[in-house]
């Protein structure tokens, strides 16, 4: 589905990602585990083609996207739900969702997708005319996810979807992620909550200081001695 080869990315003067090579298979949930500042968000932003690559390449569905601008990557179905949601606060819930389907491929099916998103998150339907900035944290996260789904993702990258949410909502969020995956969307998950993330993941890798140190099946990583100590608090 997506793979990178020896990716090197700088953020300002700092060498954040060092020789990152990985591959995610179609239909998988893949978790990226790592401490704050290890380079997880930088990786996602590199894949979204927002950050320039110093060297290396990214291939999505067999297409080399290393030189694509961000909007073209979206058209291909490589969608990011960013950390901090990045909603449009003074636009309505409905407008936020509509903008999710801004690109042609998604726009053609906008009405159908909208119905699906509303059936997944009925609360968004109820709040459709409300301004996004007035929603609660959990609702905003649903809206961010809903907006991502409106883009008809083939690969959905989620950056800290559970950040700042109440435990009950976090549980719902993970159920929803599984549900989205079952419907055929490949998922790349970046989570502080590594234990929960790995529990629903088929595969995963650990980033430390910008390098992939461990990769494998989700369960293997969850059981790895080093990850248990460093990231799972066991």
């Amino acid at each position: 589905m997506i793979s990178s080869k020896e990716l090197n990315v700088y953020y300002r003067q700092v060498h954040v990602l060092k020789d990152i090579s990985f591959e995610i298979q179609k239909g998988e949930i893949c978790s990226v585990v790592g401490a704050n500042g290890a380079g997880k968000s930088t990786l996602i932003n590199s894949l979204s083609r927002i950050l320039p690559l110093k060297s290396g390449s990214i291939s999505f569905n067999g297409e080399d996207i290393s030189q694509y601008p961000p909007h073209r990557v979206v058209e291909l179905g490589l969608i990011q739900v960013p950390e901090g949601r990045k909603l449009f606060p003074s636009l309505t819930v409905l407008e936020n969702l509509e903008l999710g389907a801004y690109q042609r491929r998604a726009k053609e099916k906008r009405e159908d997708t909208l119905r699906e998103v509303f059936s997944l998150f009925p609360i968004l339907d109820k709040r459709r005319a409300q301004l996004a900035g007035t929603l609660s944290g959990g609702e905003q996260q649903m809206l961010a996810l809903g907006r991502g789904l409106m883009s008809l993702p083939r690969l959905l990258m989620m950056d800290e979807p559970s950040l700042g949410l109440a435990p009950l909502i976090v549980k719902q969020m993970f159920n929803t992620i599984k549900q989205i995956n079952v419907s055929g969307v490949t998922i790349l998950l970046v989570e502080q909550n590594a234990r929960k993330a790995l529990a629903i993941s088929d595969s995963g890798f650990v980033i430390e200081n910008g390098k992939i140190t461990i990769s494998g099946k989700g369960s293997e990583i969850a059981e790895n001695e080093h990850t248990r100590k460093a990231f799972l608090g066991l």
């Binding site: 961000p70 909007h71 058209e75 949601r85 909603l87 999710g100 801004y102 690109q103």
Partner: peptide, 10 residues
């Protein structure tokens, strides 16, 4: 409002 978010929706 949010140019970064705008970029992410394509």
């Amino acid at each position: 409002e949010e140019s970064y978010g705008a970029m992410l929706v394509g």
